[in-house]
Simulated scan of single mutants.
Amino acid sequence: MTAPVVRAAGCVLWRRAAVPGAVELALVHRPKYDDWSLPKGKLKRGEDALSCALREVLEETGMRCEPGLRLPVSRYLVDGRPKEVHWWAAEAVGGRFVPSREVDRLLWLGPEAARWRLTHDRDRPLVDALLSVLGLLP
């Protein structure tokens, strides 16, 4: 018997940078895993993926955001169980980060620095997916 799929959702959270036409992406540090990732989390019972993504962004970054276009779904194994993460591009529109036990640091980085800082290879294509939907890929 196969294990049920762990369903999760998140956002590639972005904001306009000081340089015209440039953006910064939000990365969160999770001390439990000592990793840098994009804000995401598991769906609660009865919750749809977009609601989960927006809730997780608020919980992990303190930011309210405007969701944009959907990004590619990530599929991978965690401890032998399949996990599926639905992603959205989302622009930060306000808020304030407060460290917690789950997320102790938040970084705003340009796309190249974000790609380098992300711990998991599976998260890196989401940077290009965001740049594509924002029309910022050459």
Rank of each mutant, 00 (worst) to 15 (best):
L58Y: 10
R101D: 12
W87F: 14
E91Q: 07
W88Y: 11
E112W: 09
E60Q: 07
E47P: 04
T61N: 01
P39Y: 03
F97Q: 07
V78N: 15
L50W: 10
S100R: 09
P82T: 06
V98R: 14
P67S: 04
G110S: 12
A113P: 07
D104H: 11
M63V: 06
P39H: 04
G80W: 13
R115D: 06
L77R: 11
L106R: 08
V98L: 13
V78Y: 12
E112L: 08
E112R: 07
A90H: 03
P99G: 12
A90T: 02
L43T: 04
G110H: 06
W88G: 00
D79L: 15
D79S: 15
R117W: 15
G95C: 09
F97N: 06
S51C: 14
V73G: 14
G110V: 07
P99K: 09
L38K: 00
K44C: 13
E91P: 06
E112D: 10
E102H: 13
W87P: 03
R115H: 10
L38P: 02
E91I: 06
W88A: 00
C52K: 00
A114D: 06
R75T: 12
V103C: 03
L38T: 00
R115L: 11
A53K: 02
L38C: 05
G95R: 08
G94H: 09
E59P: 03
S51D: 14
V93A: 05
A53R: 02
G68P: 01
R70K: 11
E66N: 02
L71E: 00
L106V: 13
E59F: 12
L71T: 01
A53P: 07
L107Y: 10
K44N: 13
L43R: 00
S100G: 11
L109W: 03
F97P: 06
P72Y: 03
L54N: 03
E66L: 04
S74P: 09
E66I: 03
S74W: 15
A113R: 07
L77D: 08
A49N: 08
P39G: 05
V85D: 02
V57Q: 00
F97A: 07
G94S: 14
K40Q: 11
L54G: 02
W108P: 00
D104M: 13
R45N: 12
R81Q: 14
L77V: 08
P39N: 07
V57M: 01
V73H: 11
A92L: 05
W88R: 01
L107V: 13
P67A: 05
P111H: 00
W88M: 04
G80F: 12
V98Y: 13
L71I: 05
L107F: 14
P72H: 06
V98K: 13
S100V: 08
G110N: 09
L107K: 09
L109Y: 02
A49H: 08
A89Y: 00
R117T: 14
L109K: 01
L43P: 04
